[in-house]
């Protein structure tokens, strides 16, 4: 399967890249390529111009400071997974990186690319021949959604591994745009819009991820049939801080692959606050969390199954953190 034709550029600075990106709607940025090139081969993305960010220096770093950890957007997932610093301070982040695809995907894929990966759908991530059986969907430039026929919008799902683990840690992102930089919570990068899932403004490119110092414990649980290669059927990250006597001070639960962006179970989190984590509470929280996700039939796995597994994963995560106390 050949790539479509395009113009190829290698800017030397992020600012330059951002200006190029802003100047043309049919320009895309390339980092590791493991997501973009597949979509280009499938002709769901046919850019006029490809900007290779890899030639830009200083975007690949893991730097510890007093106020937290900064990770350059071009840092590879493999470097994140094998960083002693991350393994020690944010093991769930390292673990999530180590569960993306397989070894080569991690060696190629970057943090920025993983966070900005396209949403996925069984009707979208297919060849032109496959998609040709139906009329084009919203995401492929058409005007309907095959997942939910009359809903009027695209239901494709965010399926990344990194976002949940970083959002529960209150990670922030720095983006560079034509008019300068912006700094905002990672959670806000996602606008829950399947067709255009990122809130980046014209020309903006992810530059750096910042993770504040964290107390408490974090987990990343990924559910899939085979323990490699696959995207999550669904996954979740749980972060919890307790008072040392079993009472929850703060909890964050964020899912992947069950909505148009990473989905945070806000009410379940509230339910946990100030409570003792006993069996009954675990049961209640997992029931609540499932109510807050909205999986659709975007993959070969049914929404009902995803809900069932979501409850099981939440329970497992809560039990594991409780037992780790």
């Amino acid at each position: 399967m050949r790539l479509p034709q395009f113009e190829y550029v290698e800017p030397k600075t992020l600012k330059e890249a951002s200006k190029m990106l802003a100047s043309d709607k049919k320009t895309v940025v390339l980092a590791g390529g493991t997501d973009l090139l597949v979509n280009m081969k499938h002709r769901v993305i046919e850019p006029r111009r490809v900007i290779n960010l890899k030639a830009i220096p200083k975007l690949d770093h893991i730097t510890a400071g007093k106020d937290g950890l900064r990770i350059g957007a071009l840092t590879t997932l493999h470097d994140i997974a094998s960083s002693p610093l991350i393994q020690e301070q944010y093991p769930a982040v390292g673990q999530a990186a180590g569960e993306v695809g397989a070894y080569a995907h991690q060696a190629m894929g970057t943090l920025g690319g993983n966070l900005c990966q396209e949403n996925r759908c069984r009707f979208y991530n297919q060849s032109p021949f496959w998609r040709g059986v139906r009329s084009p969907c919203y995401k492929a430039g058409g005007d309907l959604c095959h997942v939910v026929k009359k809903s009027g919008k695209c239901h494709s799902a965010y399926c990344g591994d990194m976002a949940p683990a970083l959002i529960v840690l209150d990670a922030q992102v720095k983006v560079t745009g034509p008019d300068g930089e912006r700094f905002f919570p990672l959670k806000k990068l996602y606008n829950q819009n399947g067709k255009k899932p990122l809130s980046l403004k014209t020309g903006e490119i992810l530059k750096e991820v910042f993770i504040p110092p964290s107390s408490g414990k974090t987990l990343y649980l990924k559910w899939r049939l085979r323990d490699s290669l696959e995207f999550p059927i669904l996954s979740l990250s749980l972060h919890m801080e307790t008072d040392g006597k079993g009472q929850v001070k703060k909890a964050r639960i964020v899912f992947s692959s069950v909505g148009e962006g990473p989905v945070e179970a806000v009410s379940a989190e509230k339910m946990l606050k100030g409570k003792l984590l006993d069996e009954r509470m675990i049961e209640k929280v997992s029931e609540q969390a499932v109510k807050e996700i909205s999986p659709m039939r975007t993959s070969i796995h049914s929404p009902a199954y995803k809900r069932k597994m979501a409850a099981i994963l939440v329970r497992q995560a809560l039990e594991e953190l409780r037992n780790a106390e």
């Binding site: 790539l3 190829y8 390339l30 390529g33 493991t34 090139l37 290779n52 080569a104 060696a107 190629m108």
Partner: peptide, 19 residues
């Protein structure tokens, strides 16, 4: 299609030669 790029395993089918 795995090759090594600077010693790291890389899927050459998802790598632009130009890059």
């Amino acid at each position: 299609c795995t090759v090594l790029i600077d010693g790291k395993p890389s899927l050459s089918c998802l790598t632009l030669a130009a890059a």
